[in-house]
Design a protein around this nucleic acid. Structure first.
Lengths: 192, 192
DNA sequence: ACTACTACTGAGTACCTACTAGGTAATAAC
DNA sequence: GTTATTACCTAGTAGGTACTCAGTAGTAGT
């Protein structure tokens, strides 16, 4: 009744394995979305079995949570690093950061659309994220315009939209350049 | 060897059944995307079995194709109906039309993000669609600005982005109003 | 060396996936 | 009324889904 127990691939400490799992999952969700993601694919990408993967994340929802948690901590870290600036500077910094990590931007683009439906496991997360972003930009915008909320929404919309085009045509669309052109129009007092 | 053959639900002519299938599928893809769509759900929504559904569309990819084909024909019809106008008028009409059909807009929002990956069955479709849209707007924009392509891209980006916000917060975001605010900024000569 | 812990596996469960083969019955053509 | 067409069914295939259970082996603490 002895099981031929194979251990060909190395056994990693939990923290390191989790990092790997998050990295692999990020790539796969960016490609297929969460509905299209399979635990098997993630396990294969990490070189372990599905129960081995489940040992670390508990469930498929737990896997998504791990990815989003990791992103939140990374974002916190990067926001804390830079000095607070004007609205325009903040946006430019944000765009530059995004232009350097297409994989992450694509993860968010796919999940943001997928999570529009209320029964998506990341629905609440993206609701909160969207609110926070608009609020943050809106506060910065109060110095420059009367209708800060509207401007904040336009900024977010333009960023999201340009990112989609950039992700589809990475060679012919330069995200940073497009944002510069656009912000010239955005940050101008309306004469009407 | 006699099969107890059940036919409780009515038998429809092919064209009518196809219309129903497209309608149901549109709603389901908007909610779950194509990767998250199951033939079973579509069949249930139409009141027939999965092989019954397959009789009409052939395969899951064929189902998606049927939906996109139908959308194309509808769009053709609606574009043909209205007289050609200025860039600003054309955009406003487009936004008004979209504001009246959130289900369709959501279908496109979800599929556009999902189809970023080249192995998505709608990848080529959305590639072509994006190109055509930018080209069309770009031609209209040549009358008004020097950099028509950039302006066209900004218009598409802003529309896509605002739509995402509107789909997430349909009660607090008014698509038409937001577009009006935004176009006031977009269609202004840059003084820089 | 012994013990406790934990990262991980093999085997299995219950169910869902798209899709096929072959047949049945409602409809339309004549 | 007979025949042809077609809308749709039952049954089945081959494989994928997330997840559970019980056990194994590598690691760390003492």
């Amino acid at each position: 009744m002895a099981l031929p127990y194979r251990r060909e691939r190395p056994r990693l400490p939990a923290a390191e394995r989790r990092r790997q799992i998050v990295e692999v999952t990020t790539r796969l969700i960016a490609e297929r979305g969460f509905w299209g993601l399979s635990m098997q694919d993630v396990a294969d990408g990490c070189g372990l079995t599905v129960p081995g993967l489940l040992h670390h994340v508990g469930s498929k929802d737990g896997l998504l949570l791990a990815v989003l948690d990791h992103r939140d901590r990374e974002d916190m870290r990067s926001v804390g690093e830079q000095a607070p600036g004007t609205l325009r500077e903040t946006c430019a910094a944000l765009v530059r950061r995004n232009a350097a990590q297409p994989e992450i931007v694509r993860l968010f683009a796919v999940l943001e659309a997928e999570s529009l439906t209320p029964d998506h496991p990341a629905h609440d997360y993206f609701d909160a994220r969207q609110r926070k972003t608009v609020e943050m930009l809106s506060e910065l915008a109060t110095d420059e315009t009367g209708d800060a909320l509207t401007l904040a929404r336009q900024i977010v919309a333009l960023m999201d939209g340009l990112q989609l085009q950039w992700l589809r045509y990475p060679e012919s669309v330069d995200l940073v350049a497009e944002w510069e052109y656009a912000s010239a129009r955005l940050f101008v007092t309306v004469a009407e």
